[in-house]
């Protein structure tokens, strides 16, 4: 029991993700700035922003559904934190694991997006509602490629458990190279999930102010931003576990730094990609996802099905 509480509140749960989220945001912002030939924020900036937002006045719109409006940030945060319990962070085994947990993690990671939709919709502001509808429309574009390209590695490993997959790829070093195509697709889909350029359509600043988050302020906004940070970390961890599963058979204390490096590597790619492009329009984004991403993810599945028959197990 005490162990479970420790897992949920301290490591790898709330406290760890809280701190790691700040560091991830810092790395993301700093790299983003350096790519643009700027200096970027100091290391404590994400934390300072958080403290500032917490201490600011919070305004709930009169027309908003107060309960949903206030609960949404907590929903989003909770879902992301729960997801990390199934992802191998310390050693090659997750805190909780069962056959099929990869599906649970993917669905848990969908909850924040729905939470943003609810928050935006029940803010009852035009900008929020348009942002909310956009984020829901976008989910249909990136979710299928993301799920499909997670399916590929799982098929090759013949298990539906993340810990099982990590164990399999560690027994068969080099097999992860088969999944590189899926990795690329997953990275691009992750940009959609995290609502970052070129897929930051739901919160396009110059079009609909801040999308679903327009009416949020004070500590609710602080929690929402933290939920976004945690989502970034958890998303990157998931990709690291599925597509970069090396080194997990070492001593847990040695695996942990490796895991951190893998997560930062994925965050670096994310911030590189978001400096690279202009924001797409919603219709262009859906076109792109269905025309290119989904077929590519499907190709990965087919490749892995064939490889499963050829490669020694």
């Amino acid at each position: 029991m005490a162990n479970a509480i420790f897992n949920i509140l301290v490591f790898p749960g709330f406290l760890f993700l809280f701190v790691f989220g700040f560091i991830a945001e810092y790395v993301d912002r700093k790299l983003y700035a350096r790519f643009q030939n700027r200096v970027g924020p100091p290391w404590f900036q994400p934390f300072a922003d958080f403290v500032k937002l917490i201490s600011k006045q919070k305004i709930v719109p009169d027309e908003a559904d107060v309960a949903v409006f206030k609960l949404v940030p907590i929903f989003a945060l909770t879902a992301s934190i729960t997801a990390v319990l199934y992802i191998p962070v310390w050693g090659n085994k997750a805190i909780y694991s069962f056959n099929g947990d990869i599906i649970v993690v993917l669905y848990l990671l969908t909850i924040p997006t729905f939470a943003y939709f609810l928050g935006g919709w029940y803010s009852r502001s035009v900008y929020s509602m348009i942002g909310a509808v956009r984020s829901l429309t976008q989910i249909f574009a990136y979710e299928v490629p993301l799920f499909l390209c997670m399916l590929g590695p799982a098929l090759l490993a013949d298990t539906w458990s993340l810990s099982g997959m990590v164990a399999f790829y560690n027994q068969h070093p080099g097999y992860w190279l088969c999944n590189l195509l899926g990795f690329a697709v997953a990275l691009i889909s992750l940009l959609g999930k995290l609502e970052k350029v070129p897929f930051d359509i739901p919160e396009a600043e110059t079009e609909i102010v801040a999308g679903a988050f327009t009416e949020y302020s004070g500590r609710y906004l602080a929690l929402l931003r933290m939920a976004l940070n945690v989502e970034l970390v958890v998303g990157a961890s998931l990709l690291a576990a599925v597509f970069l599963p090396f080194g997990f058979n070492l001593n847990p204390a040695a695996v942990f730094p490796l895991y951190i490096i893998q997560v930062f590597f994925i965050i670096a790619i994310v911030s590189f990609l978001r400096t690279l492009f202009a924001r797409l329009r919603l219709d262009q984004m859906i076109n792109f996802c269905w025309k290119y991403l989904a077929p590519l993810a499907f190709v990965q599945v087919v490749i892995n099905l064939i490889l499963k028959g050829i490669l020694p197990r």
Binding site: L31, R34, F35, N37, R38, V39, G40, T275, L276
Partner: peptide, 15 residues
């Protein structure tokens, strides 16, 4: 723009 981005990271910031 990728080439410029990679170059920028090794350049001194313009700020």
């Amino acid at each position: 723009i990728a080439g410029q981005l990679i170059q920028s990271i090794f350049k001194k910031p313009a700020t």
